[in-house]
């Protein structure tokens, strides 16, 4: 798949360590494939909050992509752990209604499924900028 990613963005994404938290296999697979194509290193994917928290503790992470709804539960505790560590993240959700987020997490970056590779690259690029400043 050819993607319209400019050189500057490509450079930002190079070797970026991105934690993927997604419990649906197809979605996780898709994110992994896209991220690898962008030159990122995929951490995970984690399919539960516990798995994700374990990755956060044991690995170096530059950015994260979190599916809001994990079955069961949500990735909100992961988001809070990342924020505590100043690690940038983006939520990803199949719901177009974002009111599912609690107040303290409103205003976070959100991508809706299905995510096109360009939007994903742009969002991760934004995270990368945040990560390296």
């Amino acid at each position: 798949m050819r993607m319209a990613i400019n050189a500057q963005l490509k450079d930002k994404l190079k070797d970026l360590r991105v934690l993927v938290v997604e419990d649906e296999f197809l979605a996780a697979k898709s994110l992994e494939t896209s991220l690898r194509k962008m030159g990122c290193e995929v951490v995970g994917p984690a399919s539960t909050v516990d798995e994700a928290l374990a990755f956060i503790k044991s690995r170096t992470i530059d950015a994260a992509i979190l599916d809001i709804n994990l079955s069961p539960g949500t990735s909100e505790p992961v988001a809070r752990a990342l924020r505590y560590r100043n690690c940038p993240f983006v939520f990803i959700t199949g719901y177009s209604n974002i009111s599912v987020l609690p107040d303290d997490l409103r205003g976070c970056l959100i991508l809706t499924k299905p995510t096109d590779p360009v939007s994903l690259a742009a969002a991760v690029g934004q995270l990368a900028e945040h990560a390296r400043t």
Binding site: L26, A27, K29, S30, T33, S96, N97, T112, K113, P114
Partner: peptide, 21 residues
């Protein structure tokens, strides 16, 4: 309606990924 919306999108997403892989 919300759930249907979610499922339709999920399914289309799955179709995309299936096609790709």
């Amino acid at each position: 309606v919300r759930e249907l919306d979610h499922r339709v999108k999920n399914n289309l997403f799955a179709v995309m990924i299936m096609a790709e892989h």
